[in-house]
């Protein structure tokens, strides 16, 4: 069966699939955006990898 074959269910569930797809894309955008803002604003600091002193990480 061809992968491009159009089944009736594709038409019937188009609205749901499109809605879920857009929601997931929006979620990725929000998580990415929040991460970007928090990291660039200085809310989050990456620990220094070469530090050996306890409590200096």
């Amino acid at each position: 069966m061809s992968l491009t074959h159009k089944h009736e269910i594709h038409t019937r569930r188009f609205s749901r699939n499109m809605g879920v797809g857009l929601t997931l894309v929006a979620l990725i955008g929000i998580v990415f955006g929040l991460t970007f803002v928090k990291v660039t604003r200085g809310d989050f600091e990456v620990p220094r990898a070469n530090s050996t002193i306890v409590g200096d990480q």
């Binding site: 019937r12 569930r13 609205s15 749901r16 499109m18 809605g19 879920v20």
Partner: peptide, 13 residues
């Protein structure tokens, strides 16, 4: 059953 199948707008409602 197919005709009554919920759409995304039904969940949004």
């Amino acid at each position: 059953a197919y005709q009554d199948e919920p759409q995304f707008s039904d969940y949004f409602a």
